[in-house]
């Protein structure tokens, strides 16, 4: 096989072969593995009911075009990109702002992760913590893991620039690897980490502010 296939998941070949011969168990397992993720991600662009429709159409497209799958990307990211194209088209039709073309020029990429005014040590000067930050992360579970914090995080995710929200959602909500995210979103690994870092830092700042009383 060509070098392009070298990074492809070894398990993909067996799954693709199963799909091509119409194996119900292989298809059921693949759908069960990826469907919740696809629906959650589609919801970043369109309302819930539409998201589910888009994902159903995505699976139909997978069934119809699996014979053309060349293994240049992982099967998972190939399927994700089918969903992405559909959901972007739909969102654009509904006049929603879709961020993908602006990936890499996300607003706030140059914003520091911590307000520079908070980094001013009495002896060392600017750029150093004056003292360790408030340890909100050590608060008891009932304060950190309740519905209220969850809602705050949801709102915090919604407030992120779109390109950051996409990367944080795939990495930290869906648990994808950085390689998978780069492939699915068509971005460089450096760009992926910048977006992830900005997004995580903003959410950390939001939690600190919320929990600091």
């Amino acid at each position: 096989m060509t070098e392009e296939r070298a990074h492809t998941d070894d398990g993909d070949a067996a799954v693709v072969a199963g799909l091509r011969r119409g194996d119900a168990d292989v298809f059921r397992a693949l759908v069960a593995e990826l469907n919740p993720s696809l629906v959650r991600m589609a919801r970043l662009y369109v309302p819930n009911a539409q998201a589910e429709e888009v994902v159903q159409e995505t699976w139909l497209a997978v069934v119809r075009s699996i014979d053309g799958f060349e293994g240049r990307a992982r099967l998972k990211t190939w399927i994700f990109r089918i969903m992405l194209n559909k959901v972007r088209t739909l969102a654009a039709r509904e006049q929603r702002i879709v961020p993908f073309s602006s990936v890499g020029r996300a607003t706030g990429d140059d914003t520091p992760s911590v307000d520079p005014d908070c980094l001013n040590h009495v002896d060392l000067g600017r750029g150093y913590w004056p003292e360790a930050p408030f340890r909100w992360d050590e608060l008891p579970a009932n304060q950190l893991e309740g519905t209220e914090v969850r809602l705050r995080i949801d709102a915090g995710l919604q407030a992120l620039p779109d390109s950051q929200r996409e990367v944080v959602s795939l990495r930290d909500v869906e648990g994808w690897s950085s390689e998978e995210v780069c492939e699915a979103l068509g971005i460089s690994s450096v760009n992926q980490r910048v977006l992830l870092h900005r997004g995580r830092a903003a959410l950390r700042g939001m939690l600190e502010e919320y929990l600091h009383d």
Binding site: R40, W136, D137, R150, D154, D172, E174, R204
Partner: peptide, 13 residues
Amino acid sequence: QVRKTVRLVSDTA
């Protein structure tokens, strides 16, 4: 705190 943030975000799935 970044690690904790990642964990809390993953719990919102």
